[in-house]
Design a protein around this nucleic acid. Sequence first.
DNA 1: TTCTTAACGCAAAATATTTGCATTAGTGGC
DNA 2: GCCACTAATGCAAATATTTTGCGTTAAGAA
Lengths: 199, 199
Amino acid sequence: MAVREGIRCGGRSARIQAEVHKAVKEMQAEAGRDEITVPAIAARAGVTPSTIYRRWGTLAELLADVAVERLRPIADPADTGSTQGDVEAWIEQYVDETASDVGKALLRDIFANAAGTNNPIQCCNFTRETLEVIRDRGVARGEAPLDIDEILDIVIAPIMYRILFQNTPPTAEECRKLLARVRSLPSLDTQMKSASLSA
Amino acid sequence: MAVREGIRCGGRSARIQAEVHKAVKEMQAEAGRDEITVPAIAARAGVTPSTIYRRWGTLAELLADVAVERLRPIADPADTGSTQGDVEAWIEQYVDETASDVGKALLRDIFANAAGTNNPIQCCNFTRETLEVIRDRGVARGEAPLDIDEILDIVIAPIMYRILFQNTPPTAEECRKLLARVRSLPSLDTQMKSASLSA
DNA sequence: TTCTTAACGCAAAATATTTGCATTAGTGGC
DNA sequence: GCCACTAATGCAAATATTTTGCGTTAAGAA
C-alpha cells in the first residue's frame, strides 16, 4: 500500500541543514555582507546550490532562518532572588546583544522577508517565554505576578524602537528608568493591579 | 580650469528617477512581490537595467528609497483645537496606515537593507516632525509643550512593536489607553513636568 | 557658447537562479 | 533485517540576473 507522506527531518537532511547553517554563521563572522551568496554558502557547506534554493527558496529566507536560531535563548535568565533584579539583569544583557552590530544585522535578516513568515513573532515569543520564567519564579516566591504585556509595552518596545528607528540604544541607566514605569513590578508597587492595556 | 565636480539633480536624471519610482509604485500595486525585478522595472520605466544598478546598487536599496518617499507625510496633521485631540486623531490614522499590508511592506523594504543607510531614522524623523507641528500649535495656544520623546517611548514604540513583532496592531481604543499614560499631555495633567527619559 | 564630466545606453561577460532528470537515502510496514 | 515508497539531493543545462567596459548624451559652470 501507499506509504504515508512524511516530511524528513533526520539523517542526511538534518546533516545538510546543520552544515549550511554552520557555513552561514562562519561566513557572517568572517566576510562582508555581499560576500555571502548562495553559491558561496553551498560551496563551503559541501552542497549543491540547488539544494539550498529548493529548501530555503532565497538567500533572504535562509538568513532569516539562521537569524531566528541565533536569537533563540540558550539558557534561562539569571536568578537574582527577586523579580525586579531578574528583569533588570536580563534587560541589560538583552539590550547589549540586540544593539550590537551582530544583533542589528540579525534583526534586519528577520524583517527582510517577513512576507509569508512569522519570524518576528517568534522573536517576540522568545522574549515572552523568558519573561514567563521570571514571572513564574516570582510567583513561586510569593510575589505578585509580573504583567508580561506591560513589560513589552513599557520596556521592550521603547528599547526596540530606539535601536531600530533612532540608532540610539538606551544605556543601563535609561533601562532602569523605563523599568521604574512598570507598575506590576512587585518590589515597586506590590499588589496594585496595573491598569495596563492587557487587562 | 577644472570644473568643480557637482552631483546632477535636474533634467534627465530627475526624469529617470521619477520614471523609475513611478514604475515601482505601479508594479507594487499590481503584481506580486517576486514579479518585481530590476529588469522588469527598467523595462516599464523605459530605462536600461544597468542605469538602475548604478544609481541604486540593488533592488533592495531602490525599494527602500521608494518606501521612504511613500512614508513621507504629505500634509500637516489635522488641527482639532487641542493638543490632546490632535495627537489622538493623528495616531489613529498613523496606525491605520502603518498596520495595513502596504504599510508593513514599506517597513520591510526600509529595514531590509538598513546596513549603510539611515532610512529607519528618517522614518522616525517624519514622526518627530509631525509631533513638532502639533506641539508648536499647542504652545501657540498657551498649552504646555508636548514632550515628543515621551510620546515616542510610550505611544509610538508600543504601536510599532505590536505591528512589527506581534502582528496585532492596537485598536483605536487601545491607542487612547496608551495616550492616557502620557503625562505631558496638557489636557490630562497640565504643567506637571514629566519625569520622562528625555529629561 | 564651450568645456568638463556625471549619468546614461548598449552589449558582452560573469554570476546567480531555475528546472528536468537520475540517484541517494529516510521512513514506515512487514 | 529487508522492502517499498518517495522526499531530498546531485548534476547539468537552460534562464535570468548582475556587473563591466566603452562610446554617447546632456547637466552645470565659466
